[in-house]
């Protein structure tokens, strides 16, 4: 039973990651491959605040959101000037650079040794210690994030982002300040990724850089593309499907040793097939043309 709740906690964490990346990919049309790095920065800032200062979980979370959003501007301001593959490559570059910092800056992050002993969140005296309790906690946060992102996406700001996705030149000719909009979207998506980071840290009670690699960024992006972008349903369905699939495989009796690889193979095939025949993914609305 605890295992079921464990999966649900992870689903909540990935829902926030997918919905926040959706703001960039599905609404602004920016394919970013550095989301895992931002997720990681959020996790590390939260962790360091929780452990080294007396701050509680929620204040640490909020500061991590702000910190990650600000750091993301270092990535977005130069990168959003670039187009097409070059933008993707630049975000990939930042993902790799940020990972290297998390891995090598041992005095602060303890590098590959990781940071253990992260306390479970305590809100107004309530400690969300058990896994089912954490599911509740993460579910509330995921719901809140989803709601806030929904407000943002259906606002005139969200609409302006969509015009950039559709035709950047026309958007500019109709008064949209392209860099400001892109960078703001980037910072917002980074801020929400930090929430996932904080949730992850509080749940695992241990973090190290290997959870925030390029492949993790690829996974989050795959969730989006398979689930579908441009609306609320797609990313949620994507997160659920991608996280349940390994469990289904295990249930079908596939040995663990090849399960991980088989799962990836399925992701890869589904990706290729969807991109060819159903670009809006399982439940999304936006097609990449």
């Amino acid at each position: 039973m605890n295992y079921l709740f464990h999966i649900l906690v992870m689903i909540n964490i990935y829902i926030i990651l997918a919905l926040s990346l959706n703001l960039l990919v599905g609404y602004t049309g920016l394919l970013s491959l550095c989301h895992a790095a931002l997720y990681g920065i959020g996790a590390y800032i939260t962790t360091l605040l929780l452990i080294h200062t007396g701050l509680g979980f929620l204040p640490s979370l909020l500061m991590a959101m702000v910190g990650t959003a600000l750091i993301s501007l270092i990535v977005s301001i130069p990168s959003t000037r670039l187009y097409g593959d070059y933008f993707v490559l630049a975000t990939l570059g930042f993902q790799i650079i940020i990972f290297a910092v998390l891995y090598n800056w041992i005095s602060v992050t303890r590098g590959p040794y990781g940071i253990p002993g992260i306390p479970r969140p305590a809100i107004f005296g309530l400690i969300f210690n058990s896994v089912p309790a954490y599911f509740l906690f993460s579910g509330i946060l995921a719901g809140l994030c989803a709601w806030l992102l929904y407000l943002i996406k259906t606002s005139p700001f969200g609409r302006a982002l969509k015009t950039i996705r559709e035709d950047e030149t026309a958007a500019a000719a109709f008064g949209k300040n392209i860099p400001r909009l892109k960078n703001t979207a980037f910072a917002i998506s980074a801020g929400f990724a930090a929430v996932s980071g904080a949730l992850f840290a509080g749940y695992m009670q241990y973090i190290d850089p290997t959870s925030f690699t390029v492949m993790e960024s690829v996974l989050i992006l795959s969730i989006l593309i398979i689930g579908g972008t441009g609306n609320l349903k797609g990313p949620v369905i994507g997160a659920v499907v991608m996280l349940l699939l390994p469990e289904i495989l295990r249930f079908l009796g596939m040995p663990d040793s090849i399960a991980a690889n088989m799962r990836q193979i399925i992701y890869g095939l589904v990706l290729i097939i969807l991109l060819r025949y159903k670009q809006e993914g399982l439940a999304g609305v936006y097609r990449f043309q």
Binding site: V218, L221, I225, Q264, I265, Y267, G268, L271, I272, L275
Partner: peptide, 9 residues
């Protein structure tokens, strides 16, 4: 993205 999918497979 398709090339990425091929790589993964």
């Amino acid at each position: 993205l398709s090339s990425l999918g091929i790589y993964i497979v």
